[in-house]
């Protein structure tokens, strides 16, 4: 049982292949993200709200659509036999899928999350908002990783759609909870950037969930000696 890919160069090719397959959609999202950032930069509160909402929607959509396109649609379109016929092992394909989806998601995620944090820090907005931004970004990233791991491990479209909807419905309540809850110890209006114990606990929980999700998925795949 090996947890690793046999051929790093092949994994890189598979990642690049997925990037190219998803390129058109990603280009659309990048354009959408620039539009959202432009709206935020207009200086009106309504435009900033619309821009922030658009960014949030795009981040969620980028993740779920990359999984939809690169995993579910690929299965439905019967591209998997083509990939399996290449000189690859199941672990090569597994790592290729995991890394391709993570890369595709992390590029816009880093731009948006980094941009939001930079904006908070470089404008008169209270620096306390950074904690809020980090918590929400981490939650979105964790949701994406869980969804990705479920999609890789489970070929049932029904379960994947269920997981997708379940995680998406959690985003709104989580944002509301983080925004309103005093327990988090957030000082959204505060000028100082302080991560309280609850915020650190939430981030640690995010990391733990991601590690468990990827660990379990890798273990499941490492047990397979053949594709089918």
């Amino acid at each position: 049982m090996s947890w690793f890919a046999t051929d790093a160069a092949m994994v890189r090719r598979l990642v690049l292949k997925d990037w190219q397959v998803y390129q058109k959609q990603l280009a659309g999202y990048v354009a959408g993200m620039l539009l959202a950032l432009g709206l935020i930069g207009l200086g009106h509160s309504w435009a900033a709200g619309a821009g922030a909402l658009l960014l949030l929607v795009l981040l969620v959509v980028v993740g779920s659509y990359s999984i939809q396109t690169l995993l579910l649609t690929e299965r439905k379109q019967q591209n998997v036999p083509f990939i399996m016929s290449l000189p690859v092992t199941p672990m090569d394909v597994y790592w290729g899928k995991l890394l391709a989806n993570l890369a595709i998601y992390l590029v816009p995620f880093t731009v948006v999350a980094g941009g939001m944090i930079a904006m908070v820090l470089s404008t008169p907005m209270p620096d306390g908002l950074v904690v809020w931004t980090v918590l929400i970004a981490a939650f979105l990233l964790t949701s994406f990783c869980v969804l990705l791991c479920v999609a890789i491990s489970c070929s049932s479209e029904g379960w994947n759609i269920f997981t997708m909807i379940a995680l998406m419905t959690l985003v709104g309540p989580f944002i509301l909870w983080v925004t309103r809850s005093r327990q988090v110890g957030l000082d959204l209006e505060g000028e100082s950037l302080v991560f309280g114990p609850v915020a650190i606990g939430l981030l640690a929980a995010d990391v733990l969930v991601v590690v468990i999700a990827i660990g379990v998925t890798s273990w499941l795949h490492a047990r397979k000696s053949s594709f089918l």
Binding site: V21, Q77, Q78, P81, F82, S85
Partner: peptide, 12 residues
Amino acid sequence: YASDDMRLYPGQ
């Protein structure tokens, strides 16, 4: 290897 259930990427 080619099989009748094997498809190439339609968008490419």
